[in-house]
C-alpha cells in the first residue's frame, strides 16, 4: 500500500474534520477521494503532506510515517489553486520543483523539457507565470509535479479552472500516467471526470469514510454521480 490511514482523527477546535478515518491506496492505481465541500478531503491530503497534524491514528505514505521529509521524497503534490511567483517562467517553475527534489545538471534540464512537452506547453517554456491563462497555469503545475518522476501524484481538484478541452486532455494524461506506473491520488468532486479515469475510490462525508472500493465493482456501468448521491444523501 502506498497510502495507509488507520483510525485517523483530526479536530479543528470543536469541529471534527476526520472521524476515525481509515483508508488504503494500492500502488499503481488511480484513486479518487470523493466528498462534498468540507467533507474532510483536503484535511486528509494536508495530513498526508504533514501540513496539519492529526489528533490520533496512524498515517503512512510510501512506507514512511506521513509528514516526514522521507515520506515526501517520491511524491508530488498539486494544490487546487496552483500559484507560483509571477516572475518565474514556466521552465523556471519546473526547474525549481526539480531542484527541490534533488535534481540538477543535464538530468534536470531533460526532465523539465520532458514534462513541459508532455503537457503540451514546451513552446511556452519562457512565458512568465503572470502572463499565463488559468488553464496554462494548471498545466504548468502538473508539469512541475511530474519533474523527477514521482511514484505518487496527489492532485487536489485538478479539473478546477480547466475548460472542456483541458478536462479531456487532463483525463487522457491521467490515464497515460497511470499506465506508466504512477499512482494517482485525486481529491475531487468532479464526478463525471473522475469516473473516466479512476480504478478505485472512497467517499468521505463529515469526516467519516462511507465507502471504499473498486469503481467497477461498486458502480458497474452505472453513474458515479448517482452512486455518490445515494450514499451521501442517505448519510
Amino acid at each position: 500500500m502506498i497510502i495507509t490511514a488507520k483510525n485517523l482523527t483530526k479536530k479543528y477546535g470543536q469541529v471534527l474534520a476526520l472521524d476515525n478515518f481509515s483508508l488504503e491506496v494500492s500502488e499503481g492505481r488511480c484513486f479518487a477521494l470523493l466528498g462534498k465541500n468540507g467533507a474532510g478531503k483536503t484535511t486528509f491530503v494536508k495530513s498526508l503532506l504533514g501540513l496539519v497534524k492529526s489528533n490520533s491514528g496512524e498515517l503512512s505514505l510510501c512506507g514512511e510515517k506521513a509528514g516526514t521529509k522521507e515520506s515526501r521524497k517520491e511524491i508530488s503534490y498539486l494544490p487546487e489553486k496552483f500559484s507560483f511567483y509571477p516572475y518565474y517562467t514556466l521552465e523556471g517553475v519546473c526547474e525549481f520543483y526539480g531542484k527541490m527534489k534533488g535534481l540538477g545538471g543535464s538530468e534536470l534540464k531533460s526532465e523539465v523539457q520532458k514534462s513541459l512537452d508532455r503537457l503540451g506547453i514546451g513552446n511556452l517554456a519562457q512565458k512568465k507565470v503572470k502572463e499565463c491563462s488559468k488553464g496554462q497555469l494548471q498545466r504548468t503545475g502538473i508539469a512541475a509535479t511530474l519533474v523527477g518522476s514521482p511514484k505518487l501524484l496527489i492532485l487536489d481538484e485538478p479539473y478546477s479552472g480547466l475548460d472542456p478541452v483541458g478536462v479531456k486532455e487532463l483525463q487522457d494524461l491521467i490515464i497515460e500516467l497511470k499506465n506508466s506506473g504512477i499512482t494517482i491520488f485525486l481529491n475531487s468532486h468532479g464526478l463525471d471526470s473522475i469516473q473516466k479515469v479512476c480504478d478505485d475510490f472512497a467517499i468521505v462525508d463529515d469526516g467519516k469514510l462511507l465507502v471504499q472500493g473498486n469503481l467497477k465493482e461498486l458502480v458497474g456501468e452505472g453513474s458515479l454521480l448517482d452512486y455518490f448521491y445515494e450514499k451521501v444523501g442517505k448519510a
Binding site: L49, L51, K73
Partner: peptide, 14 residues
C-alpha cells in the same frame, strides 16, 4: 497568503 508555503512544504524538505 499566496499558497506557496504548502507547496514548499510538500517537497522533501523539513
Amino acid at each position: 497568503e499566496q499558497g506557496v508555503m504548502a507547496q514548499m512544504l510538500s517537497f522533501p524538505i523539513s
